[in-house]
Simulated scan of single mutants.
Amino acid sequence: MINQTDQMLYRLSNLNIQQQLNTYQMSTKEKLQEGSDDSTLYSRLIAVDEKVRTYEGLQTQIERTTAQNNVADSSMASIKKIFENAIQELSKANTATTTAEGIAAISANLSGIKENLYQFANTQVEGQYVFAGSNSTIKPFEKDSNGKVTYVGNNQLRKVAVEEGSYREKGVTGFDMMMYPSATAYKGENLNFNGSDRILDQDGNEWKLNSPTNDTLTKFDSNGVATTETITPITNDGLTPATYTATLPSTDGTKFEAKTSIFDLIDNTINALNKVDSVGNPISDEESKALISKSGTELNKAYDGINIAHAQLGGRNKLFENALDNISSKLTQYDILSQNIGGADMTKVAVEAKALELTYTALYSTINKTSQLSLVNFMN
């Protein structure tokens, strides 16, 4: 009888273990309570769940990038509208019927337009400046006490993962959206540029004039550190402001662009309207009209540059939209696979629960009857 009791207790213990697993599966809808329950299945489940976590991280990152891209796109659209207004204002100044008071009003309007452009150029989302280049924590455009605006970001775009091991560039830099190519030269040709222009080569590296003599162009790397590569000599026309000339290397693929800041262009236009030069000296009516006419041409070139930058931004934004759709689809598939591998079959769990109930009932009935037998009856 003692042996029979031990057997029933052993069976009861097994039933309790099975009941615990059954209860766990019903409450969590997961097949495995411990990895040791099925090591092969557990290994597969770990691999799939790792994929799920990876794609969830990618999805979160791309969603954040998409939000920033949308704000950048909206800012570019606003910049284009503001610039269209600037072109319309300047066109009025080129007509003979515009009075001196009208010219003064146009000058004031352009000053307001410059301030609006400055605000949009420093657009930020969640503490990230969208037009700063690779370091989005710095304010890309700074203004000094004289109102001169300078781009202090870089020409390198940030890269964001769109798939495991695959990255794409996001956004546009201040070089793209608030500067336009005022001059271009290729290998062996002469590049003419102003002292305030920013010089970029075909690889996006910046070349800067050496002060104080300004007779050499020095290449700077992506971190803003001067390299040993130079172009010399640099000549200037001796005027104020000076126009410089550099002869490019005779290397295949060489292409240099002189980038003029739209803020500098607006400053020059305002000066022309106010009949002063860049240092505040008065100029003649003829000189003023010539500069205003030239500014109109340059404003249209700058507007074309803004449109190109906006198109580049749109193309990059579309890549991230497609990547988000792709990541979301893969995440859904891996979620389904994870459920198929590690999810409990609730119909089977319900059947097993009912079977356990019947087994418990039968076992406890047997234990009850056995405990009621006397030693004499058991021996008989």
Rank of each mutant, 00 (worst) to 15 (best):
I79M: 12
L90H: 03
L15H: 07
M26I: 04
F378C: 05
I367H: 04
P233W: 05
K275V: 00
A183H: 06
S136E: 11
V125N: 07
E164A: 03
T243Y: 10
V71E: 15
V279M: 04
L356F: 00
T23R: 07
I231A: 11
V349C: 03
Q19N: 09
L356M: 03
G35P: 13
D49G: 09
K29D: 00
L110P: 06
K354Q: 15
N70E: 11
L117C: 04
N205H: 12
Q68H: 04
K187P: 03
A272S: 04
N116W: 01
Y129C: 15
G188Q: 11
A104N: 10
E298H: 02
F320H: 06
T150Y: 08
A77Q: 14
N205S: 06
E206T: 04
A272N: 02
V160C: 08
N300I: 08
I2V: 02
T123P: 09
L217P: 00
N214D: 14
L291D: 02
Y151E: 06
K208M: 06
M346A: 03
T5A: 15
S145W: 06
V162L: 13
T227H: 15
V276S: 05
D304S: 04
P212K: 07
T366K: 07
F83L: 03
T235Q: 14
I234H: 04
M379I: 11
S43A: 13
M76G: 12
Y55R: 12
I283S: 10
A47E: 14
N268C: 05
I46S: 13
E257M: 12
T247C: 00
E63W: 08
A77R: 15
Y24R: 12
N223Q: 08
E169N: 13
Q339G: 12
S91Y: 00
L319H: 07
G280S: 14
G305W: 06
G224C: 13
R158V: 00
G153K: 01
D304Y: 01
L299M: 13
T66P: 03
N300K: 15
T361I: 14
Y10E: 12
Y118V: 02
E298A: 09
S365A: 00
I103W: 06
V349W: 00
A161G: 04
I336Q: 15
A77Y: 13
L209C: 02
S293R: 02
A242R: 08
V149G: 05
K143T: 02
L9S: 05
K330H: 13
T218P: 00
I62C: 03
M178V: 00
I283Q: 12
T173Q: 02
E257C: 09
K31G: 01
G102R: 09
T5S: 15
Q202L: 03
I113Q: 15
R168I: 00
Y244K: 01
L239D: 10
I234R: 11
G280W: 07
L15A: 12
A185C: 09
D176V: 03
N109F: 04
E115G: 03
A104Q: 11
F193A: 10
D203P: 01
L356Y: 00
V376T: 10
L90D: 03
I79H: 04
I336V: 15
V125H: 13
K219Y: 07
N122A: 11
T260D: 08
K139R: 10
A311G: 01
S136M: 13
L331E: 06
R44G: 10
E164R: 04
N326A: 11
K148P: 01
